[in-house]
Amino acid sequence: MSSSLAQPLPWLLLLLALAVFTAETASAAELEVEPLGGKAPQREFDYFALALQWPGTYCQRTRHCCSNNACCRGSNAPTIFTIHGLWPDYNDGTWPACCTKSRFDPKEISTLTDALEKYWPSLSCGSPSTCQGGKGTFWAHEWEKHGTCSSPVFRNEYDYFLATLNIYFKYNVTTVLNEAGYVPSNTEKYPLGGIVSAIEDAFHMSPLIICSKFCGGASPMLL
Rank of each mutant, 00 (worst) to 15 (best):
N91I: 03
S110Y: 11
G134P: 05
S75Y: 06
E200G: 00
Q53N: 08
K135D: 04
N172T: 09
H84S: 07
L208Y: 02
P96M: 14
L223S: 09
F104K: 04
G217Y: 15
L9Y: 05
F161E: 01
P128S: 02
L16D: 00
L14H: 04
L208K: 06
S3H: 14
L112A: 15
L123G: 13
I80Q: 13
N166K: 14
A70E: 02
C149G: 11
P128V: 01
R155K: 12
E117V: 06
T130Q: 03
A29S: 14
L13P: 00
S197M: 04
I83W: 03
E32S: 10
N166Y: 05
E142G: 03
G74A: 12
L12S: 07
T22G: 15
C131S: 02
F138K: 00
L112E: 12
A28G: 07
P55N: 08
L86G: 09
Y58N: 01
S75H: 10
W11L: 05
T130C: 01
L192Q: 05
G181N: 00
D159R: 10
I209K: 03
P121W: 00
I80A: 08
T62V: 14
H204N: 15
S127D: 04
I199W: 02
W139L: 15
T25V: 08
T164W: 04
K170W: 00
Y47D: 03
P8L: 12
S212V: 02
C215K: 02
S4N: 10
I167P: 01
K101W: 00
A140S: 10
L16E: 01
A97D: 13
D114V: 12
A19Q: 07
F203Y: 10
N76C: 09
W11V: 00
L223F: 13
E108V: 09
A202Y: 07
I199R: 01
L50W: 03
Q42M: 10
S102F: 11
L177T: 11
I109W: 10
Q42D: 01
Y119S: 11
G74T: 07
F81M: 13
L15A: 04
N76A: 13
R155N: 11
A180S: 04
H64C: 03
R63E: 10
N68C: 04
W11S: 00
Q132K: 02
F214M: 12
T100R: 02
S75Q: 15
L15E: 03
F81I: 13
L50C: 05
Q132F: 07
